[in-house]
Design a protein around this nucleic acid. Structure first.
Lengths: 199, 199
DNA sequence: TTTCACAGACCGTCCGGACTGTCAATGTCT
DNA sequence: AGACATTGACAGTCCGGACGGTCTGTGAAA
């Protein structure tokens, strides 16, 4: 049964278009993600797509926000279910690792690369990424009950390692170093958390 | 004075096209790098480009090899000028860091992302990257005189960190954590090298 | 009746690749 | 050594197709 009210219909179509955009970015990459592919795959007319997003650029800008929302939602939901304290570190790392290797992150990566040479995408992506970085740190800081610069540095090192790992994993599947490398970052992180003491 | 022999002419034009392709990848990104942009920028006719590279794909495949060559050349040249031994670690890291943040690496990154969803590019890029990884380790191993798995793991962690750092640096310029994070990897590396002993 | 979410035809532009033409370097034969 | 045929490095036009965006039509919700 289709939705009855206009608002429902509007919201549903909009969300469906954004989800489809993410799917296309994952499957075809940025260069291969055309508005026609998106509308066909979404089962929506050309008029519908351009009714919601006046241009391809606006669609991508909206997709950036959409992806950021999903990303934070996923991580926060998982982090809230964990018992707070220092022993939460390995679990939090695992949550981040999972979030930063799934399709959402992949779509974000495509837009990230595209934003390097596209000023409008960049203008939308930079503040979004800044917000994500800030909120991730807040989640980690709150869950572990720590706040020192040493912990912060180790946390940033983890994020950067996860990004590098995601990049490496795009073309390799048999990377037997990744587990070991992440464990090293977990050890660093726990040592710093330990040294910082309870907040 | 233009080159006289055909071989010289051929080699020169070919190299010029590959260099221009790298320039375009850096400036316009993969999606914005069209054959027309390349030919215009290279000051070469359409016929010339398709005479050397029968299709856009062949051009990119050749560019992958070209970039890998430049990358290894740059690193090896710098590594050879350093005094071998354990104290070479910080210098080697600096060499890698510089190589993995310059325009060559940027162009490679564009192709890397594109290869994720393009089987032919992937088929060309995967072995090329494997070779680079192998040769980089050989350079490091030879320069420091070490060969243990502990050192190898720390070295891989460094490479992955540098990739993550390059990715992060695309949209941020004021990343004040990067120096500190790299220093941490240098410390890990030197500790492992120290523990391994002379080869 | 009005509004609005959506449908779908249409247009100008640009892209990748095919094609034919041109001219200098090169091999060959005397 | 000189004449001549051949090769090959490039020039530049052309074409089918796809892309992003505009515009008008339509039917159900308000």
């Amino acid at each position: 049964m289709p939705p009855t009210t206009r608002q429902q219909q509007r919201d549903q179509t909009r969300k469906h278009l954004l989800d489809t955009t993410v799917d296309c970015l994952v499957e075809y990459g940025y260069a291969g993600t055309t508005t026609q592919r998106i509308q066909d795959r979404a089962g929506v007319s050309r008029g519908a797509l351009l009714h919601h997003f006046g241009s391809k650029e606006q669609l991508f800008v909206a997709a950036i926000g959409h992806i950021a929302e999903l990303h934070l939602e996923q991580i926060k939901a998982a982090a809230e279910q964990m018992a707070p304290g220092k022993q939460a570190v390995p679990g939090l790392v695992e949550v981040l690792r999972k979030a930063m290797s799934g399709p959402n992150f992949l779509a974000g990566l495509e837009l990230w690369m595209a934003a390097r040479t596209d000023p409008r995408l960049r203008a939308a992506l930079v503040p979004s990424e800044r917000r994500i970085g800030k909120e991730l740190w807040e989640v980690f800081s709150r869950s572990t009950g720590t706040a020192g610069t040493g912990v912060r540095s180790a946390f940033e090192a983890l994020l950067i390692t996860l990004r590098g790992l995601a990049l490496t994993g795009l073309l390799r599947e048999d990377d037997h170093w990744s587990d070991e490398i992440i464990q090293a970052r977990v050890r660093d992180l726990m040592a710093e958390v330990e040294a910082t003491g309870t907040k």
